[in-house]
Amino acid sequence: MKFLSQLISGISLGSIYSLIALGYTMVYGIAKMLNFAHGDVIMIGAFVVYTACVTGGLSPVLGVLLAIVVCTILGVVIERLAYKPLRAAASLAVLITAIGVSYFLQNMALLVFGSDTKQFSSVVSLEPVSLANGNLVITGETIVTIVVSLIIMIALYLFVNRTKPGKAMLAVSEDKGAAQLMGINVNGMIALTFAIGSALAAIAGALLCSAYPALSPYTGAMPGIKAFVAAVFGGIGSIPGAMVGGILLGIIENLSKGYISSQLSDAIVFAVLILVLLLRPTGIMGKKINEKV
């Protein structure tokens, strides 16, 4: 039973990683950059929910919707101000800028909200489900997280593969120049990608802090990095890859917490990343890209 309950909470944590990893992988696919600040957008989202629901007394649904709006705007603004001027620059410059943005968001939150850890109240009001005579208890947060993630992933998959803007996004990630010649607004598509990724980050932030109710300006950093590991694990740039990679990583993390050592679980997750990159640098579902001279 212990294994099963660890597995289920692993899937729940993994679904959150998947949601975050989707933001990473879509941005990486289309803008070819590692958006280090993505993890901190999660934190901002969680703070918006916290302020709206705990301080402002709004209902959780309204709070989450507000967080989605705020994060979407934030994502687009970050892209416009910090990343767009560097579109043609070397990847080192873009990466350092992204780290700068990440630090900016963290320290901004530190000044506005303070460094003390806040008790987040869950946005989920579902009762825990007890199975097998109370031996297996699944919390409402776990159920909602898994269901919401599943719906979002299906919706995203349909959006990218079936709708016109989705196909345009795919085209831009495939070949920017050719897409532009076909009349696709490349900058618009990149902004749209950042908007979608940040909206997902807001949802992930609300779910993450409902499951692990401690909120501080540094809340987003570690899940952000782990979600990037998940995106690499699944194959960066691949949407199904991010989903599979996230869930697998969540399971690995929870099982190593349960059976090996809770202090070493982070180290194990990172060791997985190094192994994946050594053995299969393109990830589980990634495509191999040949270098052109």
């Binding site: 910090a82 001027p85 070397a90 410059a93 780290i99 700068g100 943005v101 630090y103 900016f104 320290n107």
Partner: peptide
């Protein structure tokens, strides 16, 4: 001290954009 990291992060971003941005 409180504003140190905030200021550094802004300098980091601005430096990168001024040194590498197409416009600059």
């Amino acid at each position: 001290a409180d504003y140190r990291m905030l200021i550094y992060s802004i300098i980091l971003i601005v430096m990168m954009i001024v040194n590498n941005g197409a416009f600059f």
